[in-house]
Amino acid sequence: MTTPTYRTDFPQHCRTHPIDGMTLVFHRPSGATHFLDSPLPQMLALLAAKPMDAARLTTSLCATLGLPEDAEARAVVEARLTDLAGIGLVEVG
């Protein structure tokens, strides 16, 4: 089974607003309001540009943030992808 690809249409169907270094989001389809702390906005931007699997997203995220790519970074990306899928801002497959 190939590793799942994640994609998003963020920020469509959303109202976003920067506040205290975070991104405040009103998501119209769910009617929910979320605070997104980094690295979520950066992850969403990368996925909006090109759907990717977790490995490739980790690579481009670490490149964007100027961070060494390691197992811990991969774990954080995987965990945050689950969070984003949970609130419906990211879709699997």
Binding site: R15, H17, L24, F26, R28, G31, A32, T33
Partner: peptide, 13 residues
């Protein structure tokens, strides 16, 4: 707040 949707978001913001 949630039941009132986007207008409520606008006003609290």
């Amino acid at each position: 707040y949630i039941a009132l949707g986007e207008p409520a978001f606008d006003h609290v913001l």
